[in-house]
Structure formats: C-alpha cells, structure tokens
Amino acid sequence: MDLIGSDLACVRGQREVFSGLGFRVAGGEALLLVGPNGAGKSSLLRLIAGLVHRAAGTLTLDGGDPELSVPEQAHYLGHQDALKPSLTVTENLAFWIDWLGGDRAALAAALEAVALAEIADLPAGYLSAGQRRRLSIARLVAVSRPVWLLDEPTSALDVASQARLAALMKAHLAGGGLLVAATHGPLGLDDARELRLGGTA
C-alpha cells in the first residue's frame, strides 16, 4: 500500500501555502512533517484528509479500496478532539465508531488501550485535556483505517500517555498501515522519514 502525492498545491485565503509538493509513503512507514510554524504542515494533513481544497496535483492510495476515496480510508486527529461534553465517554466513542464505519465490538478494547475504561460512563465534559485527547485517539484504534493523519498528536499528553501512543502507532505500522504526522518533537518511532516544509526543502 502506498500513499502518493505529487505536485500538490494548497492555497488558503489568496496565499499560496505550498506548491509542487510530492511525497510517497509505503505501508508500514511513517512520514513526519517538520518545519517552522506556518510552513503548511497542518494544511498538508487537512489536504490529504479532503478538508482543504486541493489547488493542484494528485493524491492516490495504491493498494487501497478502489471504491473509497482517500479521506474515507484515513483517520484525522486534529487539534480539536471532536467530543460532545454532554455525552459519556462510551457514547462519544460509539458514535464515531458507527459513523466512521467500524465495529462496536472494538469499543471496550479501544478504551482499554488508552486507559479510559474505568471512566467509560462519565460525561466527556468531566475529562481533563489529556483524557479528552486519549479518547480522541481511541477512535483510531477502534476503527481500522489504513492511513493515520496526526496533527501534533502528543499535545496535552503526559509521558506515560505518549509512550502508549507510540506503542499504538508502532502496532498500526506493523499491521501494514501508514501514518503522516506533523510534529515539533520526537514521537518515539524508530525509523521515521522526515519531510521538511518551508524554507529549504
């Protein structure tokens, strides 16, 4: 499985964020987007996720499901956690499993994987920022999609949670998945390639 982008361009509010950008990520591989603020890391992730208009270029997932578009085979973990405070932890996750096309049987294991099982019945509004982040990450574990798009995935996470996230990412890569992450710090992955955005490429 290969995620291939070639000659991509992104324009936001009359300003060209990047153009002529190409990359290729194979299954089992991680691509880290690095670069200064405003270089277009988040924009590239949102572009792959289909949330930002692609001004030029092509984006394909070789070896993926030909019936589905790239965004439909991708998980996007953005800056916001996409949780409703009045719904419980379980209700929040169950909804995203149903919506993203997963199986509810995976719910309990996913909560266990992010260590939220003991507060599964609490409203999400009671959770701390780190707990909310972990609940958001549980979505990636519960629904199997080959492409993970992570925007600063470690923000708000403590050391133990960062280690847990690293383990989840390694398991995803070992299972043949691929991931693209925008980050300022190390993610705990052993052999990740870097794509430098902004300035000298």
Binding site: P71, A74, G78, A82, L83, K84, W99, L100
Partner: peptide
C-alpha cells in the same frame, strides 16, 4: 469542536 471534519470524512 472539530466534529464537522470527521463528519465529512465518513
């Protein structure tokens, strides 16, 4: 709260 992004990716 970011839910709309995910709704569009369903």
């Amino acid at each position: 709260d970011g839910s709309l992004d995910l709704l569009l990716m369903g």
